Computed example of a mutant assay.
Amino acid sequence: MSVAPPPLKGLPLNALRAFEAAARLGGFAAAGVELGVTAGSVAAHVKALEETLGAALFERHAKGVRLSALGQRVLPAFTDAFDQLGLAVQTLRVEAAPRTVHIATLPSIAQLWLSPRLPALRRAAPEITVSITAMEHPPDLKRSPFDLNLFFLPKGEGRVLEQDEIFPVCAPALAGHLKTPGDLAALPCLIDSTWSDDWRLWTEAAGLSGFVPKGPVFSLYALAVEEAVNGAGVLIGHRALVRSQLESGALVAPFGKRLPLDRVLSLWSARAFRPGGPASRVVEWLAKV
């Protein structure tokens, strides 16, 4: 008589995902943000996994958690496994909807750089649908449902579109008040909260050490650009984002000094695209416009 032992129970995928995220990111709260759940949910998944295993994956202490020796040994394999799973899911999405290209980008890049180029892209490739999601930080393309990241990145990452270069810009009516960088003290300086260091970087490069900009603060760079066009003050322009306003004359650059930063506007993907496929065509089209 044959004996059929009960099958071994597998470990729950959600618990394994919670462990990997918490271990990689250094805590339950950060893992919860990435996974879209609460820190308590992550902690509960990890605790249940530890109880099933009969071994600790984290050491708890007053300031948080740190990986146990066991957790440290197994983390690389789980990170690689979930990376591969994420890429497989992305391949499935692409195969299921082969004519849709999903791009993640900064809100300012979406509004000021990418959006003006979309009408011509639609005319050039009407069969391709471009979906855009604006976010403040580049998502992990091995885990998220995007084909491309379009962000300012350090040199050497992704397909370079252009160098990031900054310099003051203002409406033509204000330019007459600006003969030297020192004249900036007499005018409102528009400040973008995301790139709050722009003023210091440019004024130091222009020899204006210790300058403190005074003016309204904006959480959306596109709104700051619009207010600069309206004559509300002087803004540090990013060349890629204010080019159309400079070409139309809505903004002018009152000083000759331009400061290249150590980053570039870059398109990046976690995987190779099929030559001639929709994503490849979007990359090539955006790289040449």
Score class of each variant (00 low, 15 high):
W195N: 13
T100M: 08
L190H: 11
Q90E: 12
Q72C: 05
A97H: 10
K142A: 12
R93S: 02
P145A: 14
P107M: 08
L92W: 10
A124S: 11
P107Q: 05
A134L: 00
K142P: 00
G71K: 00
A88T: 13
S68H: 00
V160K: 14
R73C: 03
L148E: 02
R159I: 10
A175V: 01
R122G: 06
V169H: 07
R117N: 05
C170V: 04
A96Q: 13
R93N: 14
A125Q: 09
H177R: 15
L75Y: 04
G176V: 04
T79L: 10
A124Q: 10
L92T: 13
P138Y: 03
A124V: 02
A77D: 14
S144G: 06
E162P: 04
V160M: 15
V89N: 09
Q90S: 14
L121N: 04
H177V: 00
K179M: 07
P168A: 01
E127C: 02
S108W: 05
D183I: 09
S115P: 02
F152L: 15
I109M: 06
L153C: 02
L70P: 02
T91L: 14
L85R: 07
D183R: 13
S196E: 13
S144W: 14
L141W: 10
L112D: 03
R99C: 07
M135H: 00
V130G: 02
A124F: 02
T100N: 01
V74T: 01
C189D: 08
G71C: 00
F167G: 08
L150T: 02
L118F: 05
D197P: 01
E95V: 11
L70H: 02
L190I: 09
E165F: 01
R123H: 07
V130D: 03
P138V: 05
L70R: 13
T194F: 06
A185T: 14
C189G: 11
L85W: 12
P98M: 06
F167Y: 15
F146S: 03
T133S: 15
L150A: 04
T194K: 12
I166P: 13
V74R: 01
T180N: 10
L184Y: 04
P168T: 01
W195T: 15
L187R: 00
D183F: 14
G156N: 07
P139N: 05
K155T: 11
P154I: 04
L67D: 07
K179E: 11
L148G: 12
E165A: 08
E165K: 05
L118H: 02
K179I: 05
P116M: 10
